[in-house]
Design a protein around this nucleic acid. Structure first.
Lengths: 347, 347
DNA sequence: ATGAAAGCGCTAACAT
DNA sequence: ATGTTAGCGCTTTCAT
């Protein structure tokens, strides 16, 4: 078997189209991109010829000449995991549908984020828009991006001046707490975020805030000993639950700020020979695909739609320019209480 | 607030570096790319100047001039879900680490796959290598890709002539079945793949094959009524389990070809007031992050490493060219039986 | 409404 | 070992 690769058939260039259509390359360029000042008969002919020749512009040449990449990049703490992969999935669908290439980069630390945002190597001339998930972008960084010709949208966090998609986390905290309160629980434990999470510290704080509001509205006082940090993972949830149950006066109901932490809490309960809701009620947040498997009461959010909506906002802000009406909208996605089997009145 | 954007500061070009270093652009190009025939003193100086000027080549220009993109594209049925996002996460880490831009495209149907593979618009001049996950690529398509200058690697499926990463699915079927057999089960149900899944039909078939081998080795006969298709999701697993339990002579042990289907099976059991392993033993495949939460016995595979290894093979085959020793290796990842609480001897 | 031509920033022959 | 130069394929003034 010979190793010689026959040279790939030459692809049609804009020049081939121009020649065949009897016009100049400039006209082809205009016609194909829908620019004004092209006779409609000309545009039709050019379009036909382009189709015949299966012409499509060389992306590299376009990038070089026009400085636009038609690429969107999403920066996400990790691709692994239910939440992040859901956001990315939603964004991917919208971007590819809209004809943008879709790139993703995992950002494991705040340093990596700084490098991505500030070093010219990564973003500039490589992408037109940045979709940042659950990472905090300072206003200064956002300005710098804009100055470099990059659009920005965020999900899970918000930066003044840029479009963002998020849920009302204060509301989440309130809904969860009111559900427990309504069932008759008065001692409510909270499993929340890490004390000093460099990424995404806003979410747990807001949820805690809503929790405390609901408590006060019911005439109760927040009790710091009932608050335990988790890390939004199964293990963190389990450890937090252990601490809560080791209290002299353990809670009768627990608000876990994520389903995964609720799963861990449930594990801990089982290991102690206890169960929900018989011994303690548990409510989570997310409606993870797994929540229904174990009948977890939770607060649902539609994660893929976050990514999809953010991608739409980003694309619109790219296409309208900074002045567009969608420049800095804050999109609040709805949440919904899903009552299943892990919450009930206290024994 | 003015809308005028001050023009972004001009970026250093190869010419700037050449001038400042007192050499020609060709020499800069060679020096920076580590090509031979550059005096080491020259290379040092050029490198320094480039750093001073924060020079980095314009990707668009490189693509246009060299025809290489330094981009890798992964095609995956969906980004959502534990398995696929794990593979993608592993691949992303390796690609970005190696300096490749990482693109992803979701492929929802066989038609979409054909379009991606055969239409010149999508891949050509946009990416250097394709990583295909759980989608079947024909040898002809693989050849066509190669002829167009694109490298290919696959995970979960294999195409002759291209590198691939997979687990030994026959082995998986055998291990699961032998575990159940060893506990004393003789009537073993199987929850498998869809009868005619256009994508990825090899996996369930291989696992079933291993299952039947184990059965025969134990002197037993496969029983077609004990085989039920799932769709590798929770609901499919539940329905399959329902069908199995509705049998006149239901199985005492069930091999679910994925943990998610096992989860569904467990739900069905609970809805019937039954449980595992008291009434029937269940073993899954994957070691989904959730398996330990419900103590599911399963067969573990390291999913992110599949993506990472495939990306490494792809990069090597791109950099070595088609002749390299890694051209068509088939990497078999290990699997491991994890015995937890859903399997036990029959009652 | 259309065309001519000057880049965009790099790579790769081909010289030397 | 290094320099010259001709592209790569497109966009974008500037003319007409």
């Amino acid at each position: 078997m010979s190793t010689t690769t026959n040279p790939p058939p030459r692809r049609a260039t804009i020049e081939d189209v121009a020649q065949r259509a009897g016009v100049s390359v400039a006209t082809v360029s205009r016609a194909l991109r829908g620019l004004p000042n092209v006779a409609s008969t000309t545009r039709t002919r050019v379009t036909e010829v382009a189709a015949e020749l299966k012409y499509s512009p060389h992306p590299g040449a376009t990038r070089l000449a026009a400085g636009r990449t038609r690429t969107i990049t999403v920066a996400v703490p990790t691709l692994n995991g239910w939440y992040f992969s859901g956001v990315v999935a939603g964004a991917e669908a919208v971007c590819n549908e809209a004809g943008y290439e879709f790139q993703v980069v995992g950002i494991a630390s705040a340093e990596e984020e700084q490098r991505l945002l500030r070093e010219d190597t990564h973003l500039e001339r490589r992408t037109d828009g940045l979709l940042v998930v659950d990472l905090h972008v300072s206003e200064a960084d956002a300005r710098s991006l804009r100055a470099r010709g990059l659009s920005l949208a965020t999900v899970g966090t918000a930066t003044p001046g840029s479009p963002s998609v998020m849920i009302d986390d204060v509301d989440v905290g309130r809904i969860a707490t009111e559900h427990l309160l309504g069932l008759g629980h008065h001692r409510i434990g909270v499993i929340g975020g890490l004390p000093h999470d460099p990424l995404s510290f806003d979410v747990p704080r807001a949820r805690k805030h809503g929790h405390e509001q609901a408590l006060r509205d019911a005439g109760l006082h927040p009790d710091a000993t009932l608050f335990r940090p988790g890390d939004f993972g199964i293990d963190g949830g389990q450890e937090a639950m252990a601490a809560l149950m080791d209290l002299d006066d353990p809670p009768s109901g627990v608000f876990a700020m994520s389903d995964e932490m609720a799963f861990g809490a449930l594990m801990e309960l089982r290991q102690r020979g206890l169960s929900a809701p018989a011994d303690v009620s548990i409510i989570g947040v997310d409606d993870h695909e797994f929540a229904r498997v174990i009948e977890l009461t939770t607060i649902r959010q539609d994660v893929p739609s976050h990514g999809a909506n953010a991608a739409r906002l980003l694309i619109r802000s790219m296409e309208d320019g900074d002045g567009g009406p969608n420049h800095a909208v804050r999109h609040h996605s709805p949440v919904e209480l899903i009552v299943r089997g892990t919450t009930a009145p206290p024994a």
